[in-house]
Amino acid sequence: MSRIFVHEERCKGCLLCTTVCPEEALEQSERFNPNGFKVVQQNQQSECTGCAFCAEICPDYAITVFRKKKSAQETAT
């Protein structure tokens, strides 16, 4: 399953990413980063497809997206 990593120290809690995630997998957490912003997090209910839309719209480059490499056998078919 693909996933994102939020560099929490960079996030400003603007939540633009939550408006573009097709799986609605992003939500505001209750955690504050050192700058006092409530950072975003991936919620548990939905699955990240690695589409990277969230990273595309993030103004602060706070999201790195990891896409699952199809295992060798899957790419062969």
Binding site: S2, D60, F66, K69
Partner: peptide, 19 residues
């Protein structure tokens, strides 16, 4: 089994912004 699907272009300094 993971590859980075989105990273900051090398032409960026990577500094967090003041905006």
């Amino acid at each position: 089994e993971e590859r980075v699907a989105f990273a900051l272009p090398l032409t960026m300094s990577g500094a967090s912004t003041h905006f």
